[in-house]
Design a protein around this nucleic acid. Structure first.
Lengths: 334, 334
DNA sequence: TCCTTTTCTTGAACCGCTTTCATTAATAGA
DNA sequence: TCTATTAATGAAAGCGGTTCAAGAAAAGGA
């Protein structure tokens, strides 16, 4: 069965396509009796408008795009779900594009497939951002502050969170604190470390270079990082940290598993904390002390900011949301 | 800055739009020298084609749509990630639509916004499925077998899995086995229970009605279900099960938490098993015995089937993927 | 050199819809 | 009854691309 178009409906109802369009979209006035005929024809032919035609003419898609390289992991999936809900409330569909192919991302963005964009972790260059600005494609960055450019972003205040958890540990007597980093150079990870360092600095403590491990924000990588760190500390005989700040909860759980494997008890022998407060954090053994990432606020804020940008407002300021220290059992005083 | 179109490029390069189109899409032959001019014009004007116009004319979007009501939970997010990867390999973008609004789903589906569809849990009626068939919209169902209709689906063989885990428990001496169901009427959940019942039946054991709890596939709901079940068993004084089969791992973890809360040890006092083998299953305390849901195979299979359907092949048979029993520590012999 | 091929290029139609503007039908006013 | 309004409708022009049929230019053959 060939696809039925607005022309078929018009023919069936004995009116022009213009009238059909008006009747179905409730624009202008169409006589109730003609509207009836049109509705009947639509039903009879099972007509459903081709959205592409509609979008091309109207210049709007009523969708916002979320660009990300992955939806994996508890943090992402909750955030995405939140974004979908909030944008639906605003009358926009959320369209998730999963790709790390920069060119593809730029093409769909510039190809007007979405009215606005939420940019997650796709690494987009400065020139590309400038292009988006130049073409007035409303976009909100969700994971990093682009300070130099005229962009709007909404992020978890990772520096503050790192600072807070650092102080928490230091106040419990920890002096040697290691950090399990996420991907090298990732904004969140670096900021968390900077915050931690700041807390150490303010207490006259130092952060030796060898205390930085690479955990990739993953359980597995983090597990391995801890194992090699233990070997390294034995070989080089440097003082073992009393506490580990993991880049996120996932890597905290990997680290804890590694410590268990090596016969170290958490938190008796070593304290471990994370960031995010993902679902499992509470159920883990031991329950994770962490800093709660206000995911839902971030989702709500992102959509609000994007809507304002799409309304034509300019210069929406970026914002950084504070985390909340959740004290459970994986860290203890020394 | 107004959006630059193919016409602007044509003017800049001093050729017709037809030539520009051909040059950029590498169709027909265009003289190298003209192509050069066109490329230059594209660069100078920062031209990026409007994908909507392109799609309208070509009738194809080169994207497959995934329709789901949520991306939350480890199972979904891994599956979605897999689907995105496999479809990208086939040259198609994956477009995730998150909504449980049936009408909206049908509109985007019938509105030709995607070339093919992966239907997750959106509850779509028989008539709607018939409509999709009539309009030749290639679709693959990911979560349920629609037996009556001419649909193709790829699912985890829940019946087999239930049967297998049932036998496993029975062979360890369990005779009273309860089931923590997912949403009422959900195919997966019901099939798992049917499989379990089959195993019980074959060993001359019964499954009393009160052994069915409602866990909603969630940790929290499952936790509560166990608590009320314990109260109920005390009030009505029926024999307490020695093993609980949870509808999925998430609800298994909720159940275990509830048992701990009530002072019951897992697996010493009561065995608990789940389905899926999500990431945390291994790290949980106790590590979960479960049946592994072959998510990646499902993703790969779904994309393959969809590609064949989009190639015009008809009557692709549905398939059910077998699970794999993963024995850990949450169940023990009696 | 002229004619036939082959190689490039282009005008115009079209994809399915919206929207402006002119036109016609209906109603009101005098 | 005739004209001035108002209400409904429709013809046509796009939106930004692709593609077909046909024309123009270049190349080859005699």
């Amino acid at each position: 069965m060939a696809k039925v178009t607005i022309r078929d409906v018009a023919r069936e109802a004995g009116v022009s396509i213009a009238t059909v369009s008006k009747a179905l979209n409730n624009v202008d006035v169409v006589k109730p009796s003609t509207k009836r005929k049109i509705i009947d024809a639509v039903k009879k032919l099972d007509y459903s408008p081709n959205l592409i035609g509609k979008q091309l003419k109207s210049g709007s898609t009523r969708t916002v795009g979320l660009f990300t390289s992955s939806v994996r992991g508890p943090y992402y999936s909750i955030l995405i779900d939140g974004l979908a809900n909030f944008s639906e409330k605003e009358g926009y569909g959320l369209n998730v594009f999963i790709s790390s192919d920069r060119e593809k991302i730029m093409n769909t963005l510039r190809g007007r497939l979405v009215d606005g964009a939420l940019l997650f972790d796709p690494v987009i260059s400065q020139e590309e951002i400038a292009l988006l600005n130049a073409e007035q494609i409303p976009s909100v960055f969700l994971d990093r502050k682009i300070s130099q450019m005229n962009t709007t972003s909404i992020v978890f205040d990772s520096f503050q969170a790192g600072y807070e958890i650092g102080n928490y540990l230091i106040n419990m007597g920890h002096q040697r604190i290691a950090f399990i980093a996420g991907y090298a150079g990732v904004y969140d990870s670096e900021q968390r470390l900077l915050g931690l360092k700041q807390a150490l600095f303010e207490h006259g403590l130092s952060f030796p270079d060898e205390y930085r491990l690479e955990g990739m924000f993953e359980r597995e990588a983090s597990y391995n990082a801890i194992l090699s760190f233990i070997r390294l500390s034995q070989m080089q005989q440097f003082a073992f940290p009393t506490a580990f700040v993991a880049g996120n909860d996932l890597s905290a759980t990997g680290a804890i598993k590694a410590f268990k494997h090596e016969g170290l008890r958490v938190p008796e022998d070593v304290s471990v904390v994370g960031f995010d407060d993902i679902d499992v954090a509470e159920y883990f053994n031991p329950p994770l002390t962490t800093i709660k990432n206000p995911i839902m606020s971030q989702a709500r804020g992102a959509i609000e900011m994007l809507m304002e940008l799409m309304d034509g407002k300019k210069d929406i300021p970026s914002c950084a949301l504070p985390g909340e220290l959740i004290i459970r059992k994986s860290a203890t005083s020394i």
